[in-house]
């Protein structure tokens, strides 16, 4: 959705480069297993799509002649090091196995939970949020929220299925969207443009 929007409108105002870069870090550190394990064709293709689309978005915002001019550089000022460092420490200390790939995988789970924060802060600073950008954040949050249902279903149907790190992080991630969901639905109901209160 976001890539299509940027490609079609040649405009990325309201889009946080910081969040996109965090997602690129999340995908690359989590999908290292592309190199040494195979789960399914669907799984592999989706991993490649996630890595590829976020790399493409970053390229557009950073380097595209027209798109880069529309980037809200002065507004997108979230200090991502304050997210990356704690997640890295958490990944080093709370994991299932003290190996490089496992620590990076766990780090990516923690980082993904908070990766949307720079985008939410930027949306709050943007007076009239572009409809497509609002839809992108809604779809991203909705996608993660659906995992909660998926986990409940798998817990009930698959003996021995449990993954506490993923469940807790995913629940926090979805909770972070709650406020956004509220204003998204309100603007939808009233047929108004989305704007978050400051």
């Amino acid at each position: 959705v976001l890539l299509l929007k940027i490609h079609a409108t040649k405009n990325c105002s309201g889009v946080s480069l910081k969040t996109q870069e965090l997602y690129a870090i999340v995908f690359v550190t989590r999908y290292l297993d592309l190199l040494f394990s195979f789960i399914s064709l669907y799984n592999t293709i989706m991993k490649l799509i996630f890595i590829g689309s976020s790399a493409c978005i970053i390229w557009y915002i950073r380097f595209h002649r027209v798109v880069s001019q529309t980037y809200d550089r002065e507004q997108d000022t979230f200090r991502v090091i304050f997210l990356i460092l704690p997640c890295l420490l958490l990944g080093i200390f709370i994991n299932h196995e003290f190996t490089i790939t496992e620590i990076l995988w766990t780090f990516s789970i923690y980082l993904e939970a908070v990766a949307i924060l720079p985008q939410l802060v930027l949306l709050q600073r943007t007076k009239n949020v572009d409809t497509l950008t609002g839809n992108y954040v809604f779809l991203l949050g909705g996608y993660r929220a659906l995992y909660l249902l998926n986990w409940i279903y798998r817990f009930l149907t698959e003996p021995g299925y449990r993954q506490w790190i993923v469940w807790i992080s995913g629940t926090i991630q979805t909770a972070i969207y709650c406020d956004f969901f509220y204003y998204y639905f309100q603007s939808w109901r009233r047929n108004e443009k989305l704007s978050l209160p400051s």
């Binding site: 789960i39 799984n43 995988w105 993954q163 506490w164």
Partner: peptide, 10 residues
């Protein structure tokens, strides 16, 4: 007992 995680989710 080691918690076995199947990393089949995205």
């Amino acid at each position: 007992e080691k918690e076995e995680e199947k990393k089949d989710e995205l």
